[in-house]
Amino acid sequence: MIETIGLTKKYGSFYALQDLNLTVEDGTVFGFVGANGAGKSTTFSILATLLQPTAGDAFINGLSITKNAHEVRKQIGYMPDFFGVYDQLKANEYLDFYGASYGLKPKEREQLIPQLLELVNLSQKRYEYVDLLSRGMKQRLCLARALIHDPKVLILDEPASGLDPRARVEMREILKELKSMGKTILISSHILPELAEMCDSIGVIDAGKLIAQGSVSEIQAKLQSEKVLRIKVAGETAPIAKFFENDPLVSQIAEKPEKNLVEFLYRGSEEDQMILLHKAIMQQLPILSFAEEETDLEDVFMAITKGAETP
Rank of each mutant, 00 (worst) to 15 (best):
R135N: 08
I202L: 05
E298A: 02
G12D: 09
G203K: 10
G62S: 07
L163F: 14
I185D: 12
Y86N: 08
A207H: 12
D131E: 11
D296R: 10
A48H: 07
A35P: 05
Y11H: 13
R140I: 00
P151M: 00
A241W: 15
M282L: 14
K152Y: 08
D272F: 03
A58S: 10
L122H: 07
E226P: 01
I113H: 10
I211R: 04
P159L: 05
L141D: 09
F97M: 14
D247V: 03
A212K: 04
L154E: 13
D200S: 08
K256A: 08
T4R: 05
I113F: 13
D206H: 13
S215F: 12
L277N: 07
M137S: 03
K209H: 08
Q88S: 10
T28G: 03
R166H: 09
E293Q: 14
V250P: 11
Q213K: 14
Q18N: 14
A167N: 13
E118P: 00
V33S: 03
G27H: 06
N92T: 03
I60N: 09
L178A: 05
R126Y: 00
L50E: 15
R230A: 01
V72F: 07
S251F: 06
E128L: 02
L147Q: 05
V85N: 12
K183T: 02
L210F: 07
L223V: 02
I191N: 04
F44Q: 10
L229E: 04
G27R: 08
G268I: 04
T305A: 02
P159F: 05
G56E: 09
Y11L: 10
A212V: 04
D164P: 04
G182F: 06
M198R: 11
Y102L: 02
G268Q: 01
G162M: 10
L175K: 12
E271A: 07
I202E: 04
L17W: 07
S64F: 11
K107V: 00
V33K: 02
P159S: 12
S45L: 04
G203F: 04
Q52V: 01
E298S: 05
K67Y: 11
V130S: 03
F32Y: 15
T42W: 07
D57E: 14
Q273F: 01
A234L: 12
I231E: 03
Q252M: 11
N92S: 13
